[in-house]
Computed example of a mutant assay.
Amino acid sequence: MAIAYRQRIDDDTEFALWKIEETADDLYMQLQLNDDEKVVVENLGTNKRHLHWLSTRVLLRVMLSTNEYIDCKVDSHGKPYLVNHPYHISFSHSFDYAAVMISRKHHVGIDIEQVKEKVERIAHKFMRKQELDFISEKYKIEELYVCWCIKEAVYKCYGQKEVSFLDNILLEPFNFEGHGVVKAHLRKESIAIDYEVGYQQYQDYMIGYVIEENA
């Protein structure tokens, strides 16, 4: 399967989705992996996480249009970074899709989630009362997924642990239209960062994506 969806944010930034229709072996054959990465793949077993790991790396290779080895590591906070290519990156995956966002100039964050009713049961765990108050009845489930994806994208873009979706990331009200921009504010101790986060509904999935302008 080739790229299913691709969106350019600016001259230096884009994200893409890959629909996972290949077997693990098919994906594995498209990659160059060092010994440590091969161990990671082996430890993932044969479940969906295995396919997700492989498909994000295949998508990254396609987006970078390179046949070279891509040295992709993870820092102490769990954020992926590239050693031998001048891009900031972010990965996400959900069920049958993998998502990758890259930028030469900006820190980035992306999240993709399949839209399901169950999000309503856990909304109070990641949203404040004032945020729940602006959720509409008509698009309740979709808007809750927008909020989750946006907070996850901000979390990944910021790239450090110990950030609470409930306590540290606050969203401003928005009107759901299938795609748009939501203002988000990261507040933690002396840290104050404001973001404008994009969201996009794609089939029965929701995507949140963000760049940090001052990176």
Rank of each mutant, 00 (worst) to 15 (best):
Y28R: 12
Y28L: 08
Y28K: 08
Q30V: 08
L31A: 07
Q32M: 12
Q32I: 11
Q32C: 13
L33H: 07
L33S: 08
L33R: 05
N34A: 09
N34F: 06
N34W: 06
N34H: 08
D35R: 12
D35E: 13
D35Q: 15
D35F: 10
D35Y: 13
D36S: 13
D36C: 10
D36M: 10
D36Y: 12
D36K: 14
E37I: 03
E37F: 03
E37K: 04
K38D: 10
K38M: 12
K38G: 14
V39S: 11
V40S: 15
V40C: 13
V41G: 01
V41D: 01
V41S: 00
N43Q: 15
N43T: 08
N43R: 11
L44V: 01
G45R: 05
T46F: 15
T46S: 14
R49F: 09
R49E: 08
H50T: 03
L51Y: 06
W53E: 06
W53D: 07
W53Q: 08
L54M: 12
L54N: 05
L54R: 02
S55I: 07
T56Y: 03
T56A: 05
T56W: 03
R57M: 04
R57V: 03
V58F: 01
L59C: 06
L59K: 00
L60E: 05
R61T: 10
V62E: 12
V62N: 10
V62A: 10
V62G: 06
V62F: 15
M63K: 09
M63F: 12
M63H: 15
L64A: 10
L64F: 12
S65D: 15
T66W: 05
T66I: 09
T66V: 10
N67M: 09
N67V: 05
N67Q: 11
E68N: 15
E68S: 12
E68P: 09
E68W: 05
Y69T: 01
Y69K: 05
I70T: 01
I70K: 00
I70S: 01
D71T: 02
D71F: 12
C72F: 10
K73C: 13
K73D: 11
K73P: 04
V74D: 07
D75Y: 04
D75G: 07
D75M: 09
H77I: 02
H77Y: 15
H77D: 15
G78E: 09
G78H: 12
G78T: 06
G78P: 09
K79H: 10
K79E: 08
P80L: 06
Y81C: 01
Y81V: 02
Y81L: 04
Y81R: 02
Y81E: 02
Y81N: 02
L82K: 08
L82Q: 07
L82R: 10
L82G: 02
V83D: 11
V83L: 13
V83C: 13
P86N: 14
P86K: 13
Y87F: 15
Y87K: 10
I89F: 04
S90K: 03
S90H: 05
S90Q: 05
F91V: 03
S92D: 05
S92G: 14
S92F: 02
H93D: 03
H93S: 05
H93N: 07
S94Y: 06
S94C: 11
F95S: 11
F95D: 13
D96V: 03
A98E: 00
A98Y: 01
A98P: 00
V100Q: 02
